[in-house]
């Protein structure tokens, strides 16, 4: 499959590149990969990384080594919504274990897996900087905080509704 940014996406890429001095366009790599991941299927297939390399005039390997280093870049297909649940110390002492177990039970998936309908992926992550509002998870751009089992139920229903409607 080949990938091409539309006009809006290309304009955004050019805005990102323009922040850096002439010849330092590689600096735009992380933001460009976010843009690529958000613009297509939520993950970075090799062809998409190659496309970004060609746009930034760098070698594909320079993109692969970066994409594989940062935890927010997905190198495998993911569901429409990713529940990224924090499991680090402050969340753990505030009850994240129970929340993680509950989500697994509700969605019938283990961490790293995607539901059969392709809607939800469960990912366990390390500290996201919401320790005072624990337990928490990130879904897309948003932090869902002070999680309880009831809250998890309503969050799942909320996202499921956006798919079925």
């Amino acid at each position: 499959m080949t990938y091409t940014f539309n006009e809006t996406q290309m304009a955004e890429l050019n805005r990102l590149v323009a922040r850096y001095p002439e010849g330092k366009q590689k600096s735009a790599l992380l933001p460009a990969l976010h843009l690529a991941q958000d613009s297509f299927d939520g993950w970075l297939p090799t062809e998409l990384m190659d496309y970004i390399a060609s746009l930034l005039k760098i070698e594909p390997i320079e993109v692969y080594e970066v994409a594989s280093f940062y935890s927010m870049f997905n190198l495998k297909p993911v569901g429409k919504f990713i529940f990224e649940v924090c499991q680090t110390g402050p969340c753990m002492i505030s009850g994240s274990d129970d929340i993680i177990a509950y989500i697994q039970e509700k969605l019938s998936i283990k961490p790293g897996e995607t539901t059969k309908d392709g809607v939800f992926t469960l990912k366990l992550v390390e500290c996201l900087g919401a320790c005072g509002y624990a337990p928490m998870m990130q879904v897309g751009k948003i932090f869902r905080e002070h999680l309880t089992k009831e809250k998890v139920d309503s969050i799942i229903a909320e996202y499921r509704a956006t798919v079925t409607n």
């Binding site: 590689k26 992380l30 933001p31 976010h34 992550v125």
Partner: peptide
Amino acid sequence: QRGAGAYICGEETALIESLEGKR
């Protein structure tokens, strides 16, 4: 500029590397 999930980038030289589009 947004990072992409890496605690190490809080270390100032790692942050600079990341800002240059590297690991």
